[in-house]
Design a protein around this nucleic acid. Structure first.
Lengths: 299, 299
DNA sequence: ATCTTTATTGTTATAAAGACAATAAATGTA
DNA sequence: TACATTTATTGTCTTTATAACAATAAAGAT
């Protein structure tokens, strides 16, 4: 029995909920799938699918087996692809997914140079703050603020992602410069909206975390716009240090020194990570991208 | 092409370094392996093995592919086995691996009852403080002091594993009762030898970790013997609380209150963990063992 | 240089999978 | 309730893939 074929048949039938539909995708008669799945079931001594003429559903074991099988098939495909493309040069579509702010400010400017280095790589960049599943989606490398979702995904820390409070000199002249976290309540706040909602301002006071957010003046998922608002003196912004760097250098924004420190999350050791499938590092386009980004961005 | 068969052939040839030897294990002629591996190579468009008449070695890609393939085959086998034994009752060989001290004092006494509950399970217990790879070795459940090695291994905290300094009343009468960590230098020490060497005594003084170990009187990887030495007044021992419990209850050993606290590792939140392959929890014998141990040991 | 071991290749036999038609069970409609 | 439709399964034949066995060629050891 060709187990891989049987597994492919089985999983596709499970996904489609139909032998006939799955058979069409493979371009073979439904009877083939029926026979292969039956073989698989008899070799395992368990019923994987509950069949009726109208629809096909997974049994309890079937569901568990399916989850594992999908993963295994995917790993196998990735390993094969890595070997197949081993001796080729970097080429083809490279799917990069990045956080919006980092993407606009740091990633995109770098990619021009990358394109010149590897003209045969077609870049496909998507900027989003949603956590997309690196494994099942067709993403080659991803840049995210979190950690590796599982052990087959490798995470390289590109840079710190410390959020610091900033405001324009004009704003501070008008509103005063806060030095204590509790004073912030009387100020104006500009907020990032993440998929989990606007990020609050947190401070650790008297052995407890307090929300010291100022009243909202503007909320956006677009860091650039928030930066501009801050520079225009509209309010105080908690911005990633790398994001505010330009403004700070030109004196358009000043970093506030507040006691105790204000953070946007209880653990402040956040960082920007480059994620990619460990198994795919041999694929030249992936290796080229990972090596390039690490060389250019890592500090 | 039956890819799984090809992969099994390939990996076995790689391990044996010979088509002939691998063929003997499968009970098929060497030509079959040769043909299947050749098929695999041509489907991948890469040479996986460097052949000569005397030995067969992996190429660079071959090596990488082999590593991944071994893992994939193992996962597949586990998934299959989980389904196969899904509806069966707890039976077969159950391989348990445990730390020596915990094994002798807590695990082994429990296993008699377990055997009565599940007479069809043949127990195979190995006690060792070495960190054996739970994944590749044929271990069903392991008990270790560390953490889960990867995401496919589930870790359940069975109990704390705090080390406390103890000594016999007689010893303290002769040598005096230390109350400050720095006094320990003038005492006598009994030490566990882990695979990484004897465990030092550490104390946090003036914002720094200091080694406050007393001169060595005895070193052993056998906790029982060290416990006896301590009870005979030979010296001070850093022992897991559960290990010293009997002596403490009988008054044969006393727990020392030392400022600042003495530890054997910089992070003191150590614990005893029960480890098992997530995928194998469906296998009745594993489920029986995990549930039993958790019910009886977990505090 | 000869012998031995070992991977490969040719050829035939066998087993597995696909193709196609036919059947039976379940669902939806008249 | 009866009929039509969809769909999984089964029977039979054909095609393909793998195993078996013998023969060959290449590499290393004596």
């Amino acid at each position: 029995m060709d187990q891989v074929r049987a597994l492919r048949y089985f999983s596709k039938v499970a996904e489609m909920g139909s032998f006939t539909k799955a058979a069409r995708l493979f371009g073979v008669p439904p009877s083939s799938l029926s026979r292969r799945v039956a073989d698989l079931e008899s070799s395992l001594g368990a019923t994987l699918l509950k069949r009726s003429t109208r629809d096909v559903k997974l049994t309890e074991v079937g569901q568990r087996y399916y989850n594992q099988v999908v993963d295994i098939l995917q790993q196998l495909e990735q390993s094969n692809e890595a070997v197949r493309s081993y001796q080729a040069k970097p080429m083809g579509h490279l799917h990069i997914s990045s956080m919006v702010g980092f993407g606009e400010r740091i990633l995109l400017p770098l990619l021009e140079e990358f394109s010149q280095l590897y003209p045969e790589i077609v870049l496909d960049v998507s900027l989003s703050d949603e956590l997309s599943a690196l494994s099942r989606d067709e993403v080659d490398v991803a840049i995210r603020g979190g950690y590796a979702p599982n052990e087959r995904v490798l995470a390289i820390k590109l840079m710190g992602n410390q959020f610091v409070p900033v405001a324009s000199p004009q704003y501070l002249l008008n509103m005063g410069t806060p030095t204590n976290a509790l004073e912030l309540k009387k100020h104006k706040g500009l907020y990032f909206r993440t998929p989990n909602g606007p990020t609050p301002w947190l401070a650790y006071l008297n052995n407890q975390w307090h929300d010291v957010s100022a009243p909202q003046v503007a909320v956006s998922n677009n860091g650039k716009w928030l930066g501009e608002l801050a520079a225009k003196g509209k309010g105080i912004l908690m911005a990633p240090r790398w994001s505010a760097a330009q403004y700070l250098a030109r004196g358009e924004l000043l970093e506030l020194k507040i006691e105790p420190t204000v953070q946007i999350s209880q653990n402040n050791d956040m960082a920007v990570y480059l994620l990619y499938q460990k198994q795919r590092y041999l694929v030249p386009k992936v290796k080229a991208a990972v090596d390039f980004l690490v060389a250019r961005v890592k500090q």
